[in-house]
């Protein structure tokens, strides 16, 4: 406990560094998954290819990925960009399937009636299909957010700055409190971001709580199962 009190500024700084590495992958994987998920949902062939490739990508362990990425990106071995890219790739691997399933689960009655009313395909995607996929997308991005925050710590063994440094430093100096503090801070950060996403979801989708259709509930289960 003493260690924590004496080192609050350090923990604060590591937390900020951690946040700086976590937010970009979460945002990027969401943004990039929308077009990719659309393509996967729209064309059967691309869905098979895309999901297989992403599945294999997801199977690559994080530390080896962090080491291999520099030779592809031309970055330095300890560059924090590697972490952002690696975690974005994992995020995409999860989110593309979720997005594709979510878009596919929009009821054909609704999309047909939207077309019949005179929504152009483009308007329909943004105003009907995407919002209706929202609850499932939210469930997916929550999974991505939590695992991203947790995975950022792996970079610490390569010396990339995050809360993970509290683990490696704690081990070297044999300070249990430091490691524990790192774990508590990481988990707290994950839960905080998760809560923020839930809040954002309520703000953007006030209808979702009124409309608990069985299809969205089911797809949410699918998203959870795909991520477990």
């Amino acid at each position: 406990m003493n260690w924590v009190i004496e080192n609050l500024p350090l923990i604060g700084q590591r937390t900020l560094e951690h946040l700086a590495l976590s937010i970009p992958p979460i945002v990027l994987s969401f943004v990039l998954s929308v077009p990719l998920g659309w393509v996967a949902n729209r064309y059967r062939l691309s869905r098979g290819v895309l999901l297989t490739v992403l599945g294999l990508l997801y199977a690559i362990p994080s530390l080896p990925l962090l080491i291999v990425l520099p030779i592809i990106l031309g970055t330095g071995a300890r560059d924090s960009i590697n972490v952002v890219v690696a975690l974005t790739l994992y995020g995409i691997a999860l989110m593309v399937r979720t997005t594709s399933d979510a878009l596919g689960s929009v009821s054909s009655d609704i999309s047909q009636s939207a077309t019949a009313m005179g929504f152009s395909p483009w308007t329909r995607f943004w105003k009907v299909d995407l919002p209706l996929a929202g609850p499932v997308l939210l469930a997916g991005i929550r999974v991505v957010a939590v695992s991203t925050v947790s995975l950022v710590t792996v970079g610490a063994v390569l010396g990339i700055k995050s809360l993970g440094l509290l683990f490696t430093d704690g081990l070297q100096r044999n300070i249990v409190a430091e490691v524990l503090a790192g774990m508590v801070a990481t988990i707290a950060l994950a839960l905080l971001i998760d809560a923020a996403l839930v809040l954002l979801g309520r703000l953007l989708m006030p209808w979702a709580r009124a409309t608990r259709t069985s299809s969205t509930r089911r797809s949410r289960l699918t998203a959870e199962a795909a991520a477990s």
Binding site: V149, L151, G164, F167, L171, V179, M183, T186, I187, A227
Partner: peptide, 22 residues
Amino acid sequence: VSLTGGFRALPTLGLLIIVALW
């Protein structure tokens, strides 16, 4: 369900180190 979900937040490196220190 909440346990399996919550485990996603647990940093694996931290867990490894804390058990090793112990």
